[in-house]
Design a protein around this nucleic acid. Structure first.
Lengths: 210, 210
DNA sequence: GTCTATACTCTGATAGAC
DNA sequence: GTCTATCAGAGTATAGAC
């Protein structure tokens, strides 16, 4: 740091951003966005309020930036997971596990993304709705493909299925504990066991069992 | 009201309580507990701040009272529903539908119960955890009975199933719209269709289909 | 970029007349 | 029980020196 020649400003800036967002996320999760003060955030990332203000002009800006990062991470997570999988069924299975892992692996930003978007108003609120829709469309595309290829019973409404499935996972953030009785693999396995038996057409259900 | 003889104090008091809780719940749902001011609540139920203070000494007391009422209503809902049903399977089906209806029928208090318990701290927080556990135990009992009677595949973990199922329903509060494309019956039917096929032992699955 | 000090606003809660 | 008036505190955001 003493030598200007070996400094990498962009990296430094990213690290600062991460440090701030990480500390803020922890507080937002613990106390909620409204009950967390900018003074607390500043203290948690070793800055004084004035310095934090230099990075983020308003408290809400921190939340917006955090949510952008969180949703990007989520989309990246299921994109990578599905890329590895071979057939469409295993793709969905992998995406499901990826969503679980990204959400519950311990990143407080994910929790904040799910439960604090109500704290945003106006333009910022609308932007997050759009971002959420972008993510949900990834799922919609995957699920529609599955249906068109005959994997799913004809009477299953894929739109409702998506809402139900993602809802079950998202709610896990309220009860999952790292030291609890279930591992992320067990949780994903259980969920998939119920859903796959619940929606697959008989032919593929049989294949899935073997 | 002008004649003291025909006044019914307890009824009046209940009506006042409902009026306050209803108005407060609407605001809490719209803006969140923290962003709602006691002045707003007072105005919404045609009281002045001082008068509201007479009923509830602190803002948090309103939230606690509201949550007590909401959880009581929920427990009453599934209790009544299961009482009407005959066999254990239909009992669970009825309880599931009851939970959906109580949660989504339009009572803002239910939404607040699900998403604002984080606003409580200390003793009040602990009390709500206990109340929630009381409710979850109703479900645990029902589901355990189902398993013991052989309705469920042996490999299904009933504890996890409860968390997944109730999670799927609770999350509905974030997306369900009264004017939306799905009725409460459709939603319940879809959920049951997936879950029942996902967990029932083959023999009962066949019976369920007919 | 970081710090100190502070302006300004709004909040929950209360005191006390009626 | 309801009202008016107000307090004490906390909150965000800012100005300006360094």
């Amino acid at each position: 740091m003493s030598n200007r020649m070996i400094r990498h400003e962009p990296l430094r800036a990213d690290a600062d951003r991460d440090r701030i967002l990480f500390a803020a996320a922890h507080l937002f999760r613990e106390y909620g966005f409204d009950k967390t003060t900018v003074r607390q955030i500043a203290e948690a990332c070793d800055l004084l309020p004035g310095s934090l203000h230099y990075r983020y002009r308003a408290k809400e800006d921190i939340l917006v930036d955090m949510m952008r990062a969180a949703i990007e991470k989520t989309i990246l997570g299921i994109t990578e997971a599905t890329a590895k999988a071979q057939d469409p069924l295993q793709q969905v299975r992998a995406a499901l596990q990826a969503h679980i892992e990204v959400l519950l692996a311990g990143d407080d930003m994910m929790y904040v993304l799910l439960f604090e978007w109500r704290s945003l108003r106006g333009a910022a609120h609308k932007e997050m709705i759009r971002e959420r829709d972008r993510y949900e469309r990834c799922w919609a595309t995957m699920l529609e493909a599955l249906k068109e290829q005959g994997f799913i019973r004809p009477d299953v409404d894929m739109h409702l299925l998506r809402l139900i499935g993602l809802g079950a996972i998202n709610w896990m953030a309220t009860w999952y504990k790292k030291e609890g009785r279930y591992s992320l693999d067990e949780i994903g396995e259980s969920l998939w066991s119920v859903i796959s038996r619940g929606i697959l057409a008989p032919h593929h259900l049989y294949m899935e069992k073997t």
